[in-house]
C-alpha cells in the first residue's frame, strides 16, 4: 500500500478524533457550567423527586358509606368481599386480599376505614404526555384530510373552490397559532357552545376547540405541500391517465395522488413534528397537556430546573419516535 495514503488517512483520523473530543468537551462544559451556575444561586437539585410525577404508589382507603355491623367477610377470586349490614340496608365492598382492617361482627360507623391498600397510579406528567399524544394524533388525522381537500381545491379550476382554499391558507399561515387558538376558544367556542345551548344540545369541551385549532393550522400547511406534491408530478402522468378515459377524479386517485403523497412524506413528517411541539400552546386554554402539566407540577414541587428538562426530554421522545416512524414508512414506500 502507498505509505503516503496511509499517512494521509492517519492524519485525517487524528483530526476526526480531535473534533469528536472537542464535541464531547463542549457538551460536558455546558452541563458543568449549568451545574455551577445553579450551585452559585443555591439551587438544590432533587432528581429523586421527579419519578413520582411519572408513576407513584397511591394509598387507597375504602370507607363505609353506611352505619352497621360487618355481616360477612368472604374471599372470592383473589378478592375479599365485605358485607356491611345496617338497620334496613346493606352494602358490599370488594377489596384486594390482605388489605382488610375490620373483622366480622365489628360495628362500623359511617366513614370508618374498612380496608386500605396501596396501588400504582400514573403521575401527572405521564397523563400530560398522553393527552399531548392524543391531541396531536387527532389533529394530525384531521389535518391530513383538511390539507388534502384544501390542496386539491387550491389547484382546482373552479374559482369558488380555489379562492376559498387560497383565503383559508393565507389566513391561517398569516396569523400566529396562539391567536388562532384564542379565536377558536374564546370566539368560535363561545359562539358554537351558546348556539348549541340555545338549541338544547350538549356542550363541546374545550379540548375539541384546541384540536380544531391545531388541525386547521396544520391543514393549511399540508394543503400547500399537497399542492406542491401534485404539481411536481409530470404532466404526462395526467395526460396518460386521461387519454385512457379516466375521469379527473379517477386519474387523481389512482395515478397522481399515490405518487404525490409518496413525495410529500418528508415535509409532512416535519409538519407533524412541529404540530406536536405546537400543541404545547394548548395549555393556555386550560387543556392539561404536557407543558401545562409540567407548569402545575413546578408550582407544587418548586423544582423547575429538573422538571423543565424532563418536559423537553419527553417532547423529544415523541418527536424523535415520530420521525423514526415516518422514515421507516418512507423507506418502505420508496422500496415499493
Amino acid at each position: 500500500m502507498n505509505p503516503d495514503a496511509n499517512l494521509l488517512r492517519f492524519k485525517k483520523s487524528r483530526t476526526y478524533y480531535l473534533s469528536a473530543c472537542a464535541f464531547f468537551l463542549i457538551i460536558v462544559g455546558v452541563v458543568l457550567a449549568l451545574y455551577y451556575s445553579a450551585m452559585s444561586i443555591d439551587y438544590v437539585w432533587r432528581w429523586y423527586r421527579i419519578p413520582q410525577y411519572f408513576i407513584y404508589l397511591d394509598k387507597v382507603e375504602i370507607r363505609a358509606e353506611i352505619e352497621g355491623e360487618v355481616d360477612s367477610i368472604t374471599t372470592k377470586d383473589a378478592k375479599v368481599v365485605i358485607v356491611v349490614k345496617g338497620l334496613d340496608e346493606s352494602e358490599s365492598y370488594s377489596v384486594p386480599t390482605g388489605s382488610v382492617s375490620v373483622e366480622e361482627s365489628d360495628f362500623i360507623y359511617f366513614g370508618d376505614v374498612l380496608a386500605q391498600y396501596e396501588k400504582w397510579r400514573v403521575g401527572i406528567l405521564i397523563m400530560g404526555l398522553w393527552l399531548t399524544l392524543k391531541v396531536s394524533f387527532v389533529a394530525i388525522i384531521f389535518g391530513i384530510f383538511i390539507g388534502l381537500f384544501a390542496g386539491l381545491a387550491r389547484i382546482s379550476s373552479n374559482p369558488a373552490l380555489k379562492w376559498s382554499a387560497i383565503t383559508y391558507i393565507e389566513l391561517i399561515r398569516g396569523s400566529p397559532l396562539l391567536v388562532q387558538i384564542f379565536i377558536w376558544y374564546f370566539v368560535l367556542g363561545t359562539l358554537i357552545n351558546n348556539l348549541l345551548a340555545k338549541q338544547g344540545f350538549w356542550q363541546i369541551p374545550p379540548i375539541w376547540f384546541g384540536v380544531a385549532a391545531l388541525a386547521s393550522f396544520s391543514g393549511a400547511y399540508v394543503a400547500e405541500m399537497v399542492r406542491a406534491g401534485i404539481q411536481s408530478i409530470h404532466r404526462g402522468q395526467t395526460e396518460a391517465s386521461r387519454s385512457l378515459g379516466m375521469t379527473y377524479v379517477q386519474s387523481m386517485m389512482h395515478v397522481i395522488l399515490p405518487q404525490a403523497l409518496r413525495r410529500i412524506i418528508p415535509p409532512l413528517a416535519g409538519q407533524f413534528i412541529s404540530l406536536i411541539k405546537d400543541s404545547s400552546l394548548l395549555g393556555i386554554i386550560a387543556i392539561r397537556e404536557l407543558t401545562k402539566a409540567t407548569r402545575e407540577v413546578v408550582t407544587t414541587s418548586l423544582q423547575p430546573f429538573e422538571l423543565w428538562f424532563v418536559c423537553a426530554l419527553l417532547y423529544l421522545v415523541l418527536t424523535f419516535s415520530l420521525s423514526m416512524l415516518l422514515q421507516y414508512v418512507e423507506r418502505r414506500t420508496l422500496a415499493q
Binding site: H234, G236, Q237, E239, A240, S241, R242, S243, L244, G245, M246, H254, V255, P258, Q259, R262, Q336
Partner: peptide, 27 residues
C-alpha cells in the same frame, strides 16, 4: 371518447408506482 382512442406518448408516461401488469390492468 378517449376510452376508444388509444394514445402512445414520446416519453412513454407509464405509471411509475405501478408494475407493468398493473399499468395495463388499471384503466
Amino acid at each position: 371518447v378517449r376510452a376508444e382512442v388509444g394514445m402512445v406518448f414520446q416519453s412513454f408516461n407509464l405509471f411509475p408506482h405501478k408494475t407493468v401488469f398493473e399499468n395495463i390492468t388499471l384503466a
